[in-house]
């Protein structure tokens, strides 16, 4: 069996899903037997080559995320939404019930911690937030999901090992499902 290429990406999330990924502990060696991790926030891969499996943490919150996820979709044979934010926007989506400008104002200007000195970042290099946060499935086709906040390390390993062994993971089991 040829070795697979595995990537993990971090969009609009808190990195908790990646922490949980690391919680698979020594089982990472089993993953390493079957796949090369070619891009991951913790291994410093800059470009995303064509890969077999990409785990994506976080929701799509900005123009940059949108561009990235479309690119990821093109490069990946299998795209897995990792964690509640990627699957159902979760905490990231909580700003959807407010106006974006109100959120930015609160964060950068009016929040007490700004001591009345806050100002909106205006650099052209800063990404632009979209009006609404959306889960991955609203912009691209998602092949598999691992819900949970964070997702359980055992479930992450289960899905990974199924995919790496060319099997289809099935989460429709009370024991494997978990949100929140």
């Amino acid at each position: 069996m040829s070795r697979k290429k595995l990537a993990t990406v971090w969009l609009g999330g808190c990195s908790g899903c990646h922490m949980s990924l690391l919680d698979i502990d020594e089982r990472i060696l089993e993953v390493a037997k079957l796949a090369d991790i070619v891009k991951c926030p913790v291994v410093d891969g800059k470009e995303l080559p064509e890969v077999d499996i990409t785990l994506v943490e976080g929701a799509v919150t900005s123009d940059e995320h949108l561009e990235e996820i479309l690119h990821i979709r093109k490069q990946s044979k299998i795209l897995v939404a990792l964690g509640d934010c990627a699957v159902m926007t979760n905490v990231t989506g909580m700003r959807n019930y407010f106006e974006l400008d109100d959120c930015l104002n609160t964060a950068y200007k009016t929040a007490i911690s700004n001591d009345g000195q806050g100002e909106m970042p205006a650099s052209p290099f800063v990404m632009h937030l979209n009006q609404k946060v959306v889960p991955l499935q609203e912009v691209v086709h998602v092949d598999h999901v691992i819900p949970g906040c964070p997702p359980d390390a055992n479930t992450i390993f289960y899905v990974l090992s199924e995919l790496l062994n060319n099997r289809i993971p099935d989460l429709s089991d009370v024991k494997k499902l978990h949100y929140g």
């Binding site: 939404a81 509640d84 699957v87 159902m88 979760n90 905490v91 989506g93 909580m94 889960p135 499935q137 998602v142 999901v145 819900p147 906040c149 989460l171 429709s172 089991d173 009370v174 499902l177 978990h178 949100y179 929140g180």
Partner: peptide, 24 residues
Amino acid sequence: VCSVCVANGKCELQQLGYKVGMDH
């Protein structure tokens, strides 16, 4: 938003989701 909810883990709606196998 289960992750910030007081009922997280003890919620009937959450349980329902697990029972019907709702992954997304």
